[in-house]
Design a protein around this nucleic acid. Sequence first.
DNA 1: CCATCTTTGTGCACGCGTTCACAAAGGCAT
DNA 2: ATGCCTTTGTGAACGCGTGCACAAAGATGG
Lengths: 266, 266
Amino acid sequence: MATGRTHRPATRSRGIPEATVARLPLYLRALTALSERSVPTVSSEELAAAAGVNSAKLRKDFSYLGSYGTRGVGYDVEYLVYQISRELGLTQDWPVVIVGIGNLGAALANYGGFASRGFRVAALIDADPAMAGKPVAGIPVQHTDELEKIIQDEGVSIGVIATPAGAAQQVCERLVAAGVTSILNFAPTVLSVPDGVDVRKVDLSIELQILAFHEQRKAGELAAGAVVPAAASRQETAAVRRGAAAGREPAADQGPDGDVPAVMPT
Amino acid sequence: MATGRTHRPATRSRGIPEATVARLPLYLRALTALSERSVPTVSSEELAAAAGVNSAKLRKDFSYLGSYGTRGVGYDVEYLVYQISRELGLTQDWPVVIVGIGNLGAALANYGGFASRGFRVAALIDADPAMAGKPVAGIPVQHTDELEKIIQDEGVSIGVIATPAGAAQQVCERLVAAGVTSILNFAPTVLSVPDGVDVRKVDLSIELQILAFHEQRKAGELAAGAVVPAAASRQETAAVRRGAAAGREPAADQGPDGDVPAVMPT
DNA sequence: CCATCTTTGTGCACGCGTTCACAAAGGCAT
DNA sequence: ATGCCTTTGTGAACGCGTGCACAAAGATGG
């Protein structure tokens, strides 16, 4: 039982660095937008700007996939879209199950970005019997009892966990036992999975906490009268107005975090 | 106009490496759980296991904050909770606005992890006049017209964007102009922000695409008969059963990805 | 008070990722 | 055909992050 690595250790999968893989979807999105505007070719400089990265980085990233550009001209948009899609495995159909149809699960089920990239929501699963049969995003919710059957029948290998934190590990184990080998985890917990199973986690509250850290740092620099990059000085009063709430009892909170209700209030 | 860096370049903020900052919330969560169970002290080994990281890494991370441990014993849980909270700026109250109350926005508003960590949802904002006044998670939705006023009145410096992709940049600019200096972006777009503004992005479809890449790789290795780490071999048939859909026309998709409706269908 | 045992804190080395800078390559105009 | 101009692809250097391994520190028992 390897304890929840967030993603692949440092093993460079078939020569493509992990960092590059993480950027490919970014390039793909920018390229798709260009494709829709019928732009035939694009330079590394332009594409990099659209994707929000350095052009040298982009060229090096593409060099791992092969030499798909033409010197003096740039990259053929359509061709590159195809190559990246293929590399990411997006030319095949990936059935996905979403477990935990609360607010977040419903949001995911309705999310357009899934369907538009080769992902198909094969099933929505929730532990609440009252949810069973209710359609969410046009798909009827099924009960947890069906989990194993669905995964095997549909050949699902990717599962999304959007349950409360307390249920996540258990759901994870059932998913893995049924044959799922990739998990996207939205529950604020560290998942334990066997070797060979990939887990990626998305944690809303962690992202906010990181922002808070930098925000505090900015405020601190401001208070210390340090040199500050122009635009940030509109903000003087806000930091002061913010009331300190030091000495909060962590235990006084409303239960373990991420305890979203399993049913979506309409 | 610096084009959307995802987070801080590589500038190590006040000596604390960015990678460490990103892990602090993880430690904090594990520590809070221990605190609730009234565990007085914890060793780096135990805490590391709970947080899903290497114990050496954890010790090094803590060493950036100062020497808060006792050799031969471990770390005092309560004290460490306080120190990390303080370092992350969680001992103060951070008012946050959420813009775009669709499925995702509603999910975020209901998310318990916000309130339980010093973050307070100061306002919910949506462009749809029909939403105005409707309570979501007990907070009445306000119209976009009020955005600037709310931010200034409440001293908001952190904004969450959960709008469709098309509206994100515009919303972002209004937020920044009104004084917001940290943005959590859920829209699948690269945001352009001035220097001094931090942007972090959470992209559901990107995470899935990364999983798909690794999944495809596993399937490939399997087909090639390569040596595979034990547990993954339950899965033989699924990869084969999955139908290939190669040659999809990218342009045939349903518009730019992430075009979720701005209004939440009840 | 001393010996032993546990656990921290960190110096060091290594590898991945990023960036610079430039040679090679190809289009295009003349 | 030839020379110029643009843009790719990549070798090399650098810096950050990770993990190892161990010395220093302190608690604990006798």
